[in-house]
Design a protein around this nucleic acid. Structure first.
Length: 477
RNA sequence: CGGGGUAUAGCGUAGCUUGGUAGCGCGCAGCGUUCGGGACGCUGAGGUCGCAGGUUCAAAUCCUGUUGCCCCGACCA
């Protein structure tokens, strides 16, 4: 008779993907729910991932000349209202401060949903000459959006992110910066998070409130749904006109600046979970994993085992972030626990191994086990982490490609999304009416117009009129 | 904001139909035996049954209201 499972397992993905996601997030102890509706507590395991993301992204930003600043949490109502599209876009989801202590405020203060208006206000004061440009500022902060429904990482009322805001002398320079930052995001996601991205431009319907154009990176989750993972906006000179951000050029003429903004949030952690995770829990790519290796001693009370484990830890610490689990749980319990938390490599070390001068390495991503000599364990682990990182990217790419389809008519389009969810590549006439109709018929939205275009057909998948662009469509988070 | 669930110890739950001393498993604490895929025995601690009213001699259970959470839609990173 099979022994009853002692601990409630994670719901399998196939059974209920949404429940699987919630289970993983909780069991891996990434977050906890708080007493405030829609706000999550980032626990050490979750926050450590964010810290690594910050570290990697911040270095990449700075390498392109970006400087960090910190802006206020509050925005006066009058400031928020200076740009018409922007305020209309965000009005439904801003939180307001109406009182200071017991006194009612003269003017309401909005809790920032994003900080364009504050940066614009600042730039209007500090930019006078072409010599003051460009301004390349970024801030790490949290923002608040009064969401109707929330999910850990994917949509919470308060979330952590970075928002970059730049001001340039010319339209060309602003466009160049917009694309440059999109590429920074895409490279980061592929190199560090092992998530392949589709880079492209948003349609007018999907672009940011107040933007001239919005670029996006889109990823495909394990369940075939798309996740917008980072955006980069070119504002043109729209905000500059609204806020009066002008400078004097070389010919002593007054000019408006051209601006960009770009952001990535803790939502990207949701992508890591849903791209790499499996039925045993989280699977972290080595480069972002707070702990890359966990050593599980076997028969740890036996003399010499913990000593040897500490020795191995010291050796491995030179090539990786290592944790030694010497708690008094059983080995089997530890195996499951660290799998749930997604630690890339497990080292098993027991009396038998020590006698033979070896250890067992287990890969989190494949479950594969191998025996290595203690003499060169550091080199072996280092190489294995690299292999895992590369294999994870490759596997994610294969999954995405296998779930990317083409459609030339609506029958095909609907059938694909119904039977085998994923990205659908299809031609589009450029008319918003077709976007709306497709959404109505299939619930899919245009994810982006990819930089890498293909000519699938010469007719719009929806209306049959001459097509302008190939678009990636999909159901999105 | 609509539709559907749900709320009992840290977690998972039984009890509710038919009111009558709140029970179980995991976890937690102590001791001992264990240890290569969620070990076992013994002992023990832990509960305003989401919250607020009401009915009743008596409410986890019946009634009313309210709030949180989860899932599915409409809106967003």
């Amino acid at each position: 008779m099979a022994k009853e499972k002692m601990v409630t397992a994670i719901t399998s993905m196939e059974e209920d993907f949404a429940q699987w996601y919630t289970d993983v997030v909780k069991k891996a102890e990434l977050i906890d729910y708080s007493s405030v509706r829609g706000c999550m507590i980032l626990r050490p395991a979750g926050y450590a991932i964010w810290e690594n993301i910050q570290k990697e992204l911040d270095a990449r930003f700075k390498a392109t000349g970006v400087e960090n600043v910190y802006m206020p949490l509050f925005i006066p109502e009058s400031l928020l209202q200076k740009e018409k599209d922007h305020v209309e876009g965000f009005a439904p989801e801003v939180a307001w401060v109406t009182h200071g202590g017991l006194e009612k405020l003269q003017e309401r203060l909005c809790v920032r949903p994003t900080s364009e208006t504050l940066f614009c206000d600042l730039y209007s004061n500090i930019v006078q000459s072409y010599r003051d440009l460009p301004k390349l500022y970024n801030q790490w902060c949290s923002v608040v959006r009064w969401e109707k429904t929330t999910r850990p990482f994917l949509r919470s009322m308060e979330f952590l992110w970075q928002e970059g805001h730049t001001a340039h002398a010319t339209a060309e320079e602003a466009e160049e910066r917009t694309i440059q930052m999109l590429n920074v995001y895409a490279d980061f996601c592929e190199q560090i998070l092992a998530i392949p991205m589709i880079k492209g431009k948003k349609t007018d319907k999907e672009k940011f409130a107040g933007a001239h154009s919005t670029y996006t990176i889109e990823a495909l989750m394990h369940d075939g749904k798309a996740l917008q993972s980072g955006t980069s906006h070119n504002f043109g000179d729209g905000f500059a006109h609204a806020f009066g951000i002008q400078y004097t050029d070389k010919d002593n003429k007054l000019q408006y600046v051209h601006q960009t903004s770009w952001g990535m949030s803790t939502r990207i952690i949701g992508a890591v979970i849903m791209v790499h995770g499996d039925n045993s829990g989280l699977v972290l790519p080595p480069r972002i994993a707070p702990d890359q290796v966990v050593i599980v001693p076997i028969m740890q009370k036996k003399e010499g085992v913990l000593e040897k484990a500490a020795e191995v830890k010291a050796k491995l610490s030179e090539v990786a972030r290592v944790k030694l689990d010497d708690s008094d749980k059983s080995p089997g319990w530890k195996f499951s626990e660290h799998e749930m938390r997604g630690i890339p490599v497990r080292v098993e070390l027991g009396p038998r191994d020590i006698e033979n001068g070896q250890a067992v390495l287990a890969r989190r991503d494949t479950g594969e086990k191998m025996t290595v000599s203690l003499d060169n364990i550091a080199e072996e682990v280092k190489a294995l982490l690299e292999t895992i990182q590369n294999d994870m990217l490759e596997r994610a790419r294969k999954h995405r490609d296998a779930h990317t389809y083409t459609a030339v008519n609506m029958d095909e389009f609907s059938r694909i999304l119904k039977e085998t969810p994923g990205f659908v590549k299809a031609m589009w006439c450029g008319n918003e009416a077709c976007e709306l109709k497709i959404k109505e018929m299939t619930t899919a939205t245009s994810r982006c117009m990819p930089f890498e275009q293909e000519e699938i057909s010469d007719k719009c998948v929806c209306c049959g009129k001459p097509a302008k662009t190939m678009v990636y469509w999909g159901k999105a988070y």
